[in-house]
């Protein structure tokens, strides 16, 4: 019953479907990182890119029937956690100096 509701092309999947989804999530995360000015949302966008990598790794692991892909995801989770801790510490530090989350406040540093 459920199969009849979904067009035939999506009834069967190949590796490419998961990779395209991963590519879209990564591109959206990158676009968000470039266009958003709120520092915390910028770091959230990097987490989105990590999430895209997680999907790609798990899909490759399933495609090759190899658990290494899933092991890699565990390392991605580790790095994401470390990155979140450091990034938020940095944001708190910057927020103490200038009470705003606007990343452009710090653009004067680029010529220094």
């Amino acid at each position: 019953m459920a199969e009849a509701l979904v067009p035939e092309v999506f009834g069967q999947l190949a590796l490419g479907h998961y990779l395209i989804l991963s590519a879209f999530l990564f591109a959206i995360g990158l676009a968000g990182f470039v266009t958003r000015r709120n520092m915390i949302v910028m770091f959230l966008c990097t987490e989105l890119m990590f999430q895209a990598a997680v999907i790609a790794l798990a899909a490759f692991g399933r495609f090759h029937l190899d658990l290494s892909g899933q092991v890699m995801v565990i390392f991605v989770l580790t790095i994401a956690a470390a990155e979140a801790a450091l990034a938020l510490g940095l944001v708190v530090l910057l927020f103490k100096r200038q009470p705003t989350l606007d990343a452009e406040v710090w653009s004067e540093m680029r010529d220094a």
Partner: peptide, 13 residues
């Protein structure tokens, strides 16, 4: 394409 070398990924609908 919906499969490579006869390999179909899980997930379906």
């Amino acid at each position: 394409p919906t499969f490579y070398d006869g390999q179909v990924m899980p997930g379906g609908t």
